[in-house]
Design a binder for these strands. Sequence first.
DNA 1: TTTTTATGTTCTCTTTATGTTCTCATTTTA
DNA 2: TAAAATGAGAACATAAAGAGAACATAAAAA
Lengths: 208, 208
Amino acid sequence: MTELTRRQRQIFEFLRDNYERFAYPPTLDELCESLGMASRGSLHKHISALIDAGLIEPFSGSKQTGIRLTAQAQRDYAACEHALPYVGKIAAGKPIEALADVHYLPVPALLKSDKPCYVLQVKGDSMKEAGIFDGDWVVIEQRDYARNGEIVVALIDNHEATLKYIEQSPGKVLLIPANSAMTTQIYAPEQVQIQGILVGQMRSYRAH
Amino acid sequence: MTELTRRQRQIFEFLRDNYERFAYPPTLDELCESLGMASRGSLHKHISALIDAGLIEPFSGSKQTGIRLTAQAQRDYAACEHALPYVGKIAAGKPIEALADVHYLPVPALLKSDKPCYVLQVKGDSMKEAGIFDGDWVVIEQRDYARNGEIVVALIDNHEATLKYIEQSPGKVLLIPANSAMTTQIYAPEQVQIQGILVGQMRSYRAH
DNA sequence: TTTTTATGTTCTCTTTATGTTCTCATTTTA
DNA sequence: TAAAATGAGAACATAAAGAGAACATAAAAA
């Protein structure tokens, strides 16, 4: 993937920051107007470059219905550049509590992988025997599969998110807490969607 | 690699210190303005020298999209400025195992205090019930006193260094492990020299 | 269905931005 | 004083960006 030019970055950032403002996936003509450009053809060059870079995609196959950001384009893009996005808090049994405004946390290379990562703050004690405490920050590699024994962020029934050890066998998935007061949960594979793998952890001992 | 001139060093330091302020990799014209220069051609000479020295590079091949610091320069910078000295390993019951060559670890501001800090790697399980495991990195604020209940790096009898909870009362000092298999040690105050306080912690889950 | 319109794509051409290479003058340093 | 360093500015080459025409085809309308 070749590096973006300045204008391409500008346009991507415009899309990233203003995408919600469009009622429908914006067409080239609409984008031209928003960007103050007169030529669809010129814009198309930039859009193509962004598609090649994997940052945006046609809304539905090759049909003529506008463009949209690729899944997590914003996140990936940020990940290549500087710090990691801090996206919210994760507590066993609840959806990830997303922040209205994602901000970015510098994270030592030591604690990341070379894949896109993001940061969550842990709520609750479900992993305390693994040394992961309430309030700790965890660095999560974005990935949709796991090896047994890894600690994963899993979304259950499209609703609850949780941080647990995983054990997968044919027909069932075990999500195992590191807290003897809690019990292992057993699910059907289709109930569990892996959202990432724990690769790093940080704790601050200062009072807040 | 030839030596930098004074101006070249000045310009490099400016770049290093202000790189983040540029929304996009800066162009020669932008740099001219920032540096208060009138001539792109003059600046170009310095920039070329810095490229030859391996400190900066064109952002994207030879294309016209501005310049950036090389990865090496960024690392060096991080090492001098934002990073903490990694001085060695600490295991209960032994002196700190100092490294021959101290190197530097970038540490998020979140995990430090505003006082001088350094980094140790933990050996052993004496604090495992406090979620501090073998292999973790701990950020230590350099300080020679502690409040009761803080986790400290303590030097005992000028010989052993250890990471423990501290409880001080008139005439005695308790160093308390967070491991029910280990016992609290009681010392006379003059035996114990506090070397720092735990303020942050990091763990990597990647295999090494 | 057929026709029309909207949308994306491809192309050429022009303009602008950016980096590069000069010369020359001035300042700093040995 | 001589050499090196620095800076201004002109001239140039080329990458990047933009305008606009022409076309293909999906979507919508008749």
